[in-house]
């Protein structure tokens, strides 16, 4: 027999691989949130005659708000096809620890949707006249903050997966819960622009990430079990 028994790590890798394969086979999943991020951010300068320095000072907020919306929109599809085609049942009924599988699924999704946002963010910084000392804090904040946003959005997605049209509802559920990440994320840049030390704020963002990593999967699994009946 060629059958190889897999440990938890190997079977988690299989879930991660599947998530990445799904993303590669429909590239729109990667590109669309990214385009949304760029387009939505560039609306702000067009929406009024903003002083260039004022624009620079609200740039962190603009980038963070649009990143938050882009992450939320990209997460909507996380469980959708698995719910529709029944794969979610197979996951819930497998003898695997769901906590880890759900976690790896969200992080896999973040790799293809959240990480590209981080990469593009400096470009938006240029467009929005972000002062030079703001770039590094912006990137650090986004690296630590977008996975947290993904996990929070995944809770909302899991709660609404059985509902046919969940877009606006998802926003109503997820946006209030995302506010702390937004505040501290944009706060990292603001703090840096004010010339203050940023380590404390970064630690807060990291703490939020740890909290989300530990608790969000529990809520996601519970939400999925409620919806798959």
């Amino acid at each position: 027999m060629s059958r190889v028994a897999l440990g938890l790590g190997a079977s988690l890798r299989a879930t991660l691989r599947r998530e990445l394969q799904l993303a590669i086979s429909s590239p729109g999943k990667i590109v669309n949130p990214l385009m949304f991020f760029v387009i939505a951010s560039s609306l702000f300068p067009l929406s009024g005659r903003l002083d260039i320095d004022v624009l620079g000072s609200i740039a962190p907020g603009i980038i963070w708000v649009t990143a938050l919306l882009a992450v939320m929109l990209s997460m909507e599809s996380l469980f959708r096809s698995d719910y529709d085609d029944g794969s979610l049942e197979q996951l819930l009924l497998s003898p695997q620890p769901l906590y880890f599988h759900v976690l790896i699924k969200v992080l896999g999704h973040w790799l293809v949707t959240g990480l590209p946002l981080v990469v593009v963010a400096p470009l938006l910084g240029l467009l929005l006249n972000l002062p030079a000392q703001g770039y590094v804090p912006l990137l650090i904040g986004l690296v630590l903050g977008t996975p947290t946003l993904s996990l929070i959005a995944a809770i909302g997605t899991a709660l609404t997966v059985a509902l046919a049209r969940s877009g606006v509802l998802l926003a109503v559920l997820v946006l209030p819960l995302s506010i702390p990440v937004l505040v501290f994320g944009a706060g990292v840049v603001d703090t840096a622009l004010n010339g203050l030390p940023v380590a404390g704020v970064i630690a807060l963002l990291a703490a939020l990430l740890v909290l989300a990593l530990s608790f969000a999967p529990l809520a996601i699994v519970a939400a999925l079990r409620i919806n798959v009946q």
Partner: peptide
């Protein structure tokens, strides 16, 4: 493959 991984094994031949 994903189904097999969820059952805890890998076996392409099977």
């Amino acid at each position: 493959r994903w189904f097999c991984a969820l059952q805890g094994f890998a076996d392409d031949a099977a």
